[in-house]
C-alpha cells in the first residue's frame, strides 16, 4: 500500500494499524525537521550561566537584606533605650536640682578653724550661702555660751561700777581713775545687751533661718508653678 493509499484508507484501518501509522509518520516527520543544533545548545548553556549569575546576585542581595534586617531589629529597641536614657536623665537632673535647692544646713561641710575640711561639728565652720561673698566665722555653741556669759557678767559689773560713780556724783574721780566716760559707758550699757542679743541669736537663729531658706525656696517655686498654671486673674 502506497502512502497515498494509506491516507485514503484510514477509515478502514484497525486501531493497531492506525497507531503504527501515526507513530511512524509523526516520528519521522518530527525527526527530519526538528533537530537541536549547536547554536541552540550554546544558547541554552549561556542562558543557564546567566541564570546562575542572576541567582548569585539575588542570593548576595538577600544576604545583605538579612543583615539590614538585623539592623532594623536593633533599631526597634532604640525608642525603649532612649526612653530609659531620658528617664535616667530626669532622675539625675531632678536629684541634682533637689540637692541644690533643698539641701539643709546639716548638709554643709564642717570646717575646722584652720581651714581643714575634715572638721567636726564642734569645730567652727564656714557657711557659704548665695549672696554672701565672705564666709562668716562661727563658734561652737559651748564656746559661744561661755563668751556670752562672760560678756554679760562684765557688762553687769561695768554697770554696777558706773552706778557707783553716778551715786557718788564725782565724774572727775572717775576720769582720774581711768574709768570710761559716762556717755561711753552708757553707750556700752545700751549697746552691749543688744550685741549680746545678736550674739545669742546668731548661731541658733541662723541655723533656723538656713533651715527655713530652702523650704521657702521650694514653696516659692511651687507657688510660681501653680500661679503659672492657674493665673490669679482667672481665680
Amino acid at each position: 500500500m502506497s502512502e497515498f493509499d494509506k491516507l485514503d484508507n484510514i477509515h478502514s484501518m484497525s486501531d493497531e494499524e492506525f497507531d503504527m501509522f501515526i507513530k511512524s509518520e509523526l516520528k519521522s516527520s518530527l525527526m527530519e525537521d526538528i533537530k537541536v543544533d549547536e547554536e541552540l545548545i550554546c544558547k541554552t548553556v549561556q542562558a543557564i550561566e546567566s541564570r546562575e549569575r542572576e541567582d548569585k546576585l539575588i542570593f548576595d542581595t538577600m544576604d545583605s537584606t538579612k543583615e539590614h534586617t538585623k539592623v532594623i531589629n536593633f533599631k526597634r529597641y532604640i525608642p525603649i533605650i532612649s526612653m530609659v536614657a531620658c528617664a535616667c536623665f530626669v532622675v539625675i537632673a531632678g536629684s541634682l536640682v533637689y540637692t541644690k535647692i533643698g539641701r539643709k544646713t546639716s548638709d554643709y561641710a564642717y570646717m575646722s578653724s584652720d581651714g581643714n575640711s575634715e572638721g567636726t561639728k564642734n569645730d567652727s565652720f564656714s557657711v557659704v550661702e548665695p549672696g554672701y561673698n565672705e564666709p562668716q566665722e562661727w563658734m561652737p555653741e559651748s564656746d559661744m555660751k561661755d563668751e556670752i556669759t562672760n560678756s554679760t557678767q562684765n557688762n553687769i559689773q561695768d554697770s554696777e561700777d558706773s552706778n557707783d560713780i553716778h551715786i557718788d556724783g564725782n565724774w572727775w574721780d572717775a576720769e582720774v581713775d581711768g574709768m570710761p566716760e559716762k556717755e561711753e559707758s552708757s553707750e556700752q550699757d545700751g549697746n552691749e545687751p543688744e550685741n549680746n542679743e545678736s550674739l545669742m541669736e546668731t548661731p541658733e537663729n541662723e541655723h533656723k533661718e538656713e533651715d527655713n531658706l530652702p523650704k521657702k525656696n521650694i514653696l516659692k517655686i511651687i507657688f510660681e508653678i501653680i500661679s503659672s498654671i492657674f493665673p490669679l486673674k482667672d481665680i
Binding site: 525527526m31 526538528i34 533537530k35 537541536v36 541552540l40 545548545i41 541554552t44 548553556v45 543557564i48
Partner: peptide, 18 residues
C-alpha cells in the same frame, strides 16, 4: 555542572524540542 547539562541536552534535547 555545565558539562553535565551539556551532555543531557545532547542526549535528550532532540526529543524535548520535538
Amino acid at each position: 555542572k555545565n558539562q553535565r547539562i551539556e551532555e543531557i541536552i545532547r542526549t535528550y534535547g532532540d526529543e524535548i524540542l520535538r
